[in-house]
Design a protein around this nucleic acid. Structure first.
Lengths: 273, 273
DNA sequence: AAGTGGTCTAGACCACTTT
DNA sequence: AAGTGGTCTAGACCACTTC
């Protein structure tokens, strides 16, 4: 079914001879990337194949993926090539390596992952995950701007969610979300209320959609009356406004968020490397 | 002088025999990391040595560093080990690899680098670097909070700078900086006014201090009267407040900035990977 | 002891740049 | 043609985990 890269001079194309595929000088003729127009290195092809298996759900979040040796055999490449492919996947947080145990598919069900997308930290004390209170959950037709950012057609069904998040009982974030209706059928206020922890965990487990990347645009705004009331603060209070588009495999946008952050006892933390 | 890692079973310690250092089975006895208490892999030691040369100015920003083969010979390790060390340095933006040409020391004198620390982007149109107008440049004694963040003693000499930055003539950023007086002797308003482009370029060329990393804390605030006037806006206008501490080699803090960003036609861009 | 990822080596060849 | 980084292989051994 698989076992060979889809591209160009596929490694061990015929695969008739059982022995080692001729090392050293002749290796290039059987395995090296060809001079075809759209060249990509072998390890990138392997990386793409592994990503496909992640996307298709062949290996699910939290699960162990096959060992490097096994993947090398499957794809008929050297362990080093598989290694380089997995190195990049690990750098992109798609998988996590654990020495002596194996390589695991990343999951949002870990303390590690909880602060990858939420960068609001307390000015003092240790960070911990806030509690959610859902204000509104309903289906609606996508406005033009939402549709554009989610790569939908204007008027397509989307699920709209509004919630308030509190740290130690202090309301600090008021957040609106828009999700493609097709992908999140059956997402109700009840299920959201039952679920503890980041919504991304629920999206991953219950809807098979894993967020792997996001882009945020941040501004300062003044609190409108309604938002001020939800945050127990005065209208006009300055708030951080973070608009986030999250992407799943294949750079497909699958979530739009607009969060308003009260930054009196918290700050948005960002490290520039 | 150099040529050997400072640690443990140094590779090719004695280095008497001229021939290849015994490949294969016996390689471990002459080269592999020992079982000493504070173990670190060879490539990390090589990385540290290269970093020292960067820090000491042996290879200056923009210059070519020795080739992988040459470094491998110098350190008596394989090219692959040097390669892995440089891979990490490249990932940290300390060096830049260019196929066919060599590996270069990173510099702030490139368009590439200009937006690594300045994340304010126009809502529409292509990003370009803003113009500076300096309001104030003087020496003063470090207040307690500044001293703490810069790892100085309260009362130590610091250079204080205040400026306004404009995009297409529109004042958008008002920024205050504090720099350790010892490192930036002779930094005057004149030299700042002469210099075009990011201050980090000047710091690097004229004062030998290269910023390699920064940590920002971001909040929303209301414009005070003085700042509002500088930004040609009304007092009370919501502004993004970014407090940044920048670090040079050895995680030494060498700059504190507090920037106020007008986010009416611009936004702070952040990608979460 | 066996299996996994992590390190290290040596050598080949490729792609790109410069001479 | 020569030099540089980039890819690929094959094999050895180390560190860690599990049985």
């Amino acid at each position: 079914m698989n076992s060979v890269p889809p591209n160009q001079t596929s490694p061990a194309a015929a695969a008739s001879a059982p022995a080692t595929p001729a090392p050293g000088a002749t290796a290039s003729s059987s395995v090296a990337p060809s001079a075809s127009p759209t060249f990509s290195p072998l390890y990138q092809q392997i990386k793409a194949l592994i990503t496909q298996s992640l996307q298709s759900g062949e290996w699910k979040p939290g699960e162990l993926i096959p060992s490097e040796v096994e993947l090398a055999n499957r794809f008929k490449v050297s362990q080093g090539t598989v290694r380089k492919a997995i190195d990049e996947l690990a750098a992109e947080n798609l998988v996590v390596r654990k020495q002596g145990k194996g390589t695991f598919v990343s999951t949002h069900h870990e303390a590690r992952a909880h602060f990858r997308f939420l960068r609001l930290m307390p000015d003092e004390g240790v960070p911990h995950y806030p509690e959610s209170k859902f204000i509104e959950v309903r289906r609606l037709r996508a406005p033009a701007d939402v549709a554009r950012l989610l790569d939908l057609k204007s008027g397509d069904a989307v699920i709209y969610i509004k919630r308030v998040q509190s740290f130690d009982g202090v309301p600090t974030i008021v957040e609106e979300l828009w999700l493609p209706g097709l992908l999140f059928k059956g997402l109700t206020a009840e299920r959201l209320n039952e679920y503890k922890g980041p919504m991304y965990g629920l999206f991953e487990s219950e809807f098979g959609t894993r967020m792997i990347r996001a882009a945020e645009k941040i501004r300062a705004v003044c609190a409108a009356e309604a938002d001020a009331a939800l945050l127990h603060t005065a209208p006009g209070t300055p708030l951080l406004c973070a608009e986030r588009v999250s992407f799943t495999y294949g750079d497909k946008p699958v979530e739009l968020r607009r969060g308003l952050y009260l930054t009196e006892r918290h700050h948005y933390q960002n490290d520039l490397n």
